[in-house]
Design a binder for these strands. Sequence first.
DNA 1: TCCATTTGTGTCAGCGCTGTCAATTATTAC
DNA 2: GTAATAATTGACAGCGCTGACACAAATGGA
Lengths: 344, 344
Amino acid sequence: MSRSTIFDVASLAGVSIKTVSRVVNGEPNVSAGTTERVEKAVKELNYRPDRSARSLASHRSNLIALIYDDPSVYEIPSAGYVIRLQQGALRACRKTNCELLIHPCNYQDEHVGTELKTLIETVRPDGVILAAPLSNMRNILRAISVTGTPFVRVSPGKKVFKEFTVSMNDRESSAEMTRYLASLGHKRIAFVTGHPKHDAVQIRFAGYQDGLRESGLKFSERLVEAGDNSIRSGEACAEKLLARKQRPTAIFAANDDMAAGVIRVADRLGIDVPGELSVAGCDDVALAQQIYPALTTLRQPLAAMAERAAMALIDHSRVATPLRGADTFAAKLLVRESTGPAPD
Amino acid sequence: MSRSTIFDVASLAGVSIKTVSRVVNGEPNVSAGTTERVEKAVKELNYRPDRSARSLASHRSNLIALIYDDPSVYEIPSAGYVIRLQQGALRACRKTNCELLIHPCNYQDEHVGTELKTLIETVRPDGVILAAPLSNMRNILRAISVTGTPFVRVSPGKKVFKEFTVSMNDRESSAEMTRYLASLGHKRIAFVTGHPKHDAVQIRFAGYQDGLRESGLKFSERLVEAGDNSIRSGEACAEKLLARKQRPTAIFAANDDMAAGVIRVADRLGIDVPGELSVAGCDDVALAQQIYPALTTLRQPLAAMAERAAMALIDHSRVATPLRGADTFAAKLLVRESTGPAPD
DNA sequence: TCCATTTGTGTCAGCGCTGTCAATTATTAC
DNA sequence: GTAATAATTGACAGCGCTGACACAAATGGA
C-alpha cells in the first residue's frame, strides 16, 4: 500500500502522465472522457501529487509564509493577535490547497533581515505576509524586496512602499470611538498612546483628535499619556491620569492591553467602572471579554485582513493578478460593560 | 544577481557537485582543504540549497507539522496554549534548520482523518506533532499511523498507543496543588472537572483525590462539579458549589479558564478571594495573570514539551533515534494572589 | 473541397539535489 | 616494498513532476 505516483495513475487510466498532470491541475483542453477516467484512477489509487516534485518543476511551492513579531518578546497576550492572523491566512490556504508556514521573529534582532532572506530563499514561498509591526520596518521590507518574492503588508501605519497593503481604518474608527464616548456625555476624554514603533497604533491618536473635534471638544495635552502597548504601561498611564485634580471621566487607550491596565488601576483606586470612569480599548483581544467589566473596544478584523492578504498572494502567484494598492477594513465598535454615561 | 545553484558553487570551488552536497550536509570523509574551499564558495555566492529539490531527492522535507484543535471552535483563550506549543516547536526547528507547518483542525469534523492524511501525504513532513486533545483520538491516530510518518503525541491522557509521548505529570502536580491548599488550612476543597474528551484534564481529578488522601482529608462527591474547560462552565460550577450550605473554602479547577469563571462568580456574589475563598487553576494560561486576583496555578511547560517533541522527531528523521516511550515534564506550582489561608 | 485553426494528447528534457557505486589516492600492516 | 584497507572524490541515474514543443485529429470557413 505504498504511495502511488502520477505514473501509476497514468497507467491505470491509459493515458500519458502529462495528461494526468493536466487533469490534476485543471488545465484546459482535456476531453471530458479522459478527465473522467483520470479522476477515477486518481480516486482509486488515492493519488496525491508530491509537493516537492511539483514545486521543483513548477517553481511554485504552494506555501505562504506568515511573518510576525514574536510575542514572547513582549507578553503572551498578543497571542490572540497572532492566532487571528493565522486563522485568516489559514482560511485562504485551505480554500486554495496551500499550506501556511509561520515564522515569528524578533524585530529588534539585527539579523532579522538575513534570517528572513534565508527563509525565503530556501523555502521559496509563493508569497509572504508581513504583519505589523514588522510591516513598516525598512530593513525588513528591503530584505524581502530583494528576494523578489511577492509580499503583502498587514497594518503598516504609513504607506511608505507601494506594495499591496491591508489595513484597518484606524483613524476613522478611533474617531468613531471618541465620538461615541462624547455622545455619552463625557467632556474630559483622555487618551493613552501606544508603542511608538507600531504606526497603526499611532494613527489612532490622530483619530482620537478628529473625534474630539467632530464632537466639539477641545484637545488637551494634559489628557494624553504615552504607553508602549503593554498592560503595565497602561497601568502607569492610568495612575498619572487619575491623579490629576481634574480627573478624566473616560479613558480611551490605543490598545486593549493598556485599557485593561487602566481598569486594574481604577479597581485598585476604588474608582467604579463604568460608573465613575468609562474605559475603551482597541483591537478586541481575547482579554477584552475576560476582564471585568468587559471592555468596550474596536474589533480589528484581523482574520479577514490576513485572509485577504493570503488570497491576494495566492491569486497573484497563480494568475498573475497585480499586487498593489491597499484594502481597508472597517473596524467594529463593540459596546460592552466598561463604558457608560458620564457621571454628573 | 539570480540565485546560485549547487553547480555554481561546485565550479567556483573546483569540485564536483556531490562534494558540495557533502560539505553542505556535513557528511564525513571530506578533506579539510576541500571543505574550506567549498565553504568559501558557498559564502561568496550566497548559496542556499533549495528545499524542494533536496526534499525530492532525499525524501526528507525538513518540515515538521504541528497539528492541533482549532481554538476558534471553542473560544479564543486557548490561543495561549497554541502559541506556547508553536513557540516550543519553533525553537527546535530553528536550531535544526527546519520549518514549521501549522495545521489547526476541528476534531469534531468527521473528515479530519482524511484531511490529515492528505496533508501528510502531499507535504511529507519529517514528523508530526499531535497536540491534545487530538493526541488521544483513535480515528486521528489511526489516520496518521497509516501514512507511516513518525509522530509524537503531546499530553495524551491515556497511553493507548505506544508512540512517543510527551506530557506533564498531571496527576502528581494536581496532588501537589491539593496538598498546598490543604496546607493553608482548607478542609473543604472543591474540584471542577474538565472536558471529558481531554484526558489529561481528567487525570487531574485523580491527582486531586490523591492530594486529599495524602493530606488526610476525605473525598466528597458534593465538592465536585463537572465543567467543560470553558470559562462559562466554570461559572456554572461555581454557582452550584457556592450555593451549598457548607460552602467550600477552596476551589481547584482543572484548568485556568474555569478557575477564572469561579473568580468571576465569587466577585459577583461578593465573596472575597482569597479572603473567603481560595481559587486555584491549572495551565497558567495568559489569562491567569491578567485577572484580578491573579490566579494561583500549575504551569504546564508546554513550550518545553513541544520543543522536546519536535526535537525527537527531527533526531529520528536524521539519525534514526528510536521514537518510543514517554517524557514527562514536571509542572510548576505558581502561587499568586488567588489563594490564601483558610478563613476561620 | 482544401487549408487554417482549434482541440486533445504525447514526447522529452530537466527542475536542483542526493544516493549508489565506482574510481582514485592516502594510509596502514606486514 | 607490497597488499590490504581506509579516506576522499566523482559519475551518473533518478526523485516526481511540469513546461515547451510536436503531433494527430477534429472543426470551421472560404
